[in-house]
Design a protein around this nucleic acid. Structure first.
Lengths: 223, 223
DNA sequence: GTAGTAAATGACCAATAGTCATTTTTTGCC
DNA sequence: GGCAAAAAATGACTATTGGTCATTTACTAC
């Protein structure tokens, strides 16, 4: 009598196929220009059915965004499992974030949308919490590496690990965002390669956070 | 026969009073929840009239945002006219940006909305160009100070002035954005004071960009 | 086969950005 | 002041869309 279990699976797979459809539409048109009618049509379902599975268009948007977060988490995890020296790991985190952006621009943009304040009002408590918790796991991964680096005396231990994680993470985020929106403009009008700028700012920040020992590691890595 | 001139002035003042009304509504509800009907009512005009002066709701939004940009420009200008030593000026720029955020949170939020990619599609070319040009003036101000600092050998002259401006500006922007949206969360859950984090990251970055001479100036300023 | 339950539907509603034919106001002229 | 032409303002209307819910369809258990 595995009927209930099967139903559960079917429900889950329907949720997934709705996200598939939503993703297709959101990627093409962005949140404001995507319509629930189009998502429903793409999913080959009636509009009302969508609302049996998701509370609002914004919830659906976040459900798609979560897929992006999961990809990013997995990429970070993969770096951690390589058990590289701490300084190398931090550099790889930055490279990985950039790679994530390049391979998943649509998801990256969604992450950013999540930060606009007015957006949140249309989102259900539950979905919001779900996203926040997931986000947390990324912070934890970075913070853990930093803590480890301090223990190994590669990173200045007068800094707070969480604070350090925030600074590094924020730095990459903004510059990637700028690359996304204004790369050509900066290249053409000011002859600035923002990818170079990103690497430079990461390097400057990282360097200022390292101990002498850490700096030696970094120097060795750059040659 | 100054009729034409007078009409021009009246038209301008009507545009301003429409922005007044729009500002009031946008500040209260944010872009998505503000309606043109409510703005019209606040302005004591018919909705159709708004469209005689602005192409779209988004154009109106940007018109309000420009006021914020002007405030920020004037604050920066004021710092420049004080003709402080370069290192001090850079620190004051950072403080000024923070002050701008604190005194004009509503405007600050609008600046960030401007960066979301889908937003742009509803905006008229003309308004977009107008904003971009204005934005440019802020970049120029920061870049000029940095160039001056390099000439005075306070800032490492192997760095590109524009690149340096981008990095410093971006760093403050993200952290202020995070302060705006997540200050309480970071304070309560992680015991992190993001204002402190902002100051720290500015300091770390600035330090990594200074020459020995510049570092001495900085040290003197911090005591 | 049937009663009862779960899932899906789509016509419908309310809200709202934007339009445009009509009305009101202003201007220039006598 | 009166009047015609131009300019400005109006608000009813349209099209679109997020979300609802009474009804229909499909499935389950016996």
């Amino acid at each position: 009598m595995g009927t209930i279990e099967r139903k559960e699976r079917e429900k889950e797979s329907r949720k997934e196929s709705i996200i598939d459809a939503a993703q297709k539409v959101f990627f093409e048109k962005g949140l404001p220009l995507s319509t629930m009618d189009e998502i429903a049509e793409t999913a080959e379902l009636a509009k009302g059915t969508l609302y049996l599975y998701y509370h609002s268009k914004e919830d659906l948007y976040l459900a798609v965004m979560m897929r992006g977060l999961m990809i990013l988490r997995d990429m970070f995890r993969e770096v951690v499992t390589r058990k590289l020296p701490v300084v190398k790991t931090l550099i790889e985190f930055a490279n990985t974030y950039t790679l994530f952006y390049e391979q998943n621009k649509n998801y990256f943009r969604m992450l950013h949308f999540f930060n606009t304040p007015q957006f949140h009002k249309q989102v259900s408590e539950k979905m919001m919490k779900s996203c926040d918790e997931f986000n947390q796991t990324l912070w934890v991964m970075v913070t853990e590496i930093i803590t480890q680096g301090m223990a190994e005396q590669k990173l200045r231990n007068d800094l707070d690990p969480i604070e350090t994680a925030i600074i590094l993470w924020s730095n990459s985020s903004t510059l990637l965002m700028r690359i996304d929106g204004q790369y050509e403009m900066f290249k053409d009008k000011l002859n600035i390669d923002l990818y170079k700028t990103l690497r430079l700012s990461n390097l400057l920040l990282l360097e200022s956070m390292l101990t002498e020992q850490g700096k030696n590691d970094l120097k060795a890595l750059l040659n």
